[in-house]
Amino acid sequence: MVAFAGWEMPIQYAGIVEEHRTVRERSGAFDVSHMGRFEVHGPEAVAFLRYVNTWDVARLAPGEGHYSVMCREDGGILDDVYVFCLDETRYLVVVNASNAEKIGRWVRKHVDRFDAQIVDRHLSTAMIALQGPSSLDRVRALVGDAFVGSLKPRRCAETEWRGHTLFASRTGYTGEDGLELIVEGDAAPELWRALIDQGVTAIGLGARDTLRLEAALLLYGNDMDEETNPLEVGLGWVVSLDDADFIGKEALVSAERAGNSRELVCLKTEDRGIMRAGCSILHSGEQVGKVTSGGYSPTLSTSIGMGFVPPDLAAIGGELQVDVRGKQLRVRVAQRPFYKRPKKTRK
């Protein structure tokens, strides 16, 4: 167990590599209750959420969700979040554990101007991520075929499970198919046991990190922070600049016009050696950036990472070096993501 953002978290159960493979090949469950959760209720819930998000959440129909970013006025990233529309007057926002308090203060500060209320769900509910190719099948016995079938990618819905409200979304942080489930805290141990009884394997925080890195999904605090704008980390696709006003819009319009001074790229090595967060990235002997996330990829059996480099060194295939405790590891800028799940063959 390890302390993480004020929560006691399991690093591993059976071992990181074994757990990683379980998620890639079968189905694993992560207790992600540490992730911050709140709902926004009221007639102006969507107007408020549009104001604090870079992505135009007004595009969400009931039962849809989308990834987004919340920025400061200067365009610095406060957090990356997932916004779900439960119905027109009820939205759910999932934020990072490490930012839950900060975002709580931020949204409370800005909600006053709107006819909307924040309803915190962080400590009253628990969240379980079910990830891996057989995850949907594992959960059918618990919530029924029709409910599972209704959950297309990025869709969400609520159902009743043993007298409790169960939220499910077809989302995740591993690059695999799967669901994220939210249930009242009291019912969580029962739900966890029911999933294990269905053949799902418990997975720790260690494999969560190796899985998300292979999928090139960003980690707040590593790959982005308040000094980073969404455009330079490849999140331009969740910045909607051509419609309503939102916090940070002006700064991001300027940033887009100016162009990026650095870009987050994927790095892969064929050398022996493992890049880790904090290692310097070199080009022709000169330091040009830092690795923000790095480690060993169990799927590729080599070291992968992400880091910032100047835009002229960001082209796919470009050769760079990473300084690993004084040794230079040859790396190449790689296609994002490192791992893409195989397309399902139709039955």
Partner: peptide, 8 residues
Amino acid sequence: LGDIVLLD
């Protein structure tokens, strides 16, 4: 240590 992946 957990899963060992490299020795130098």
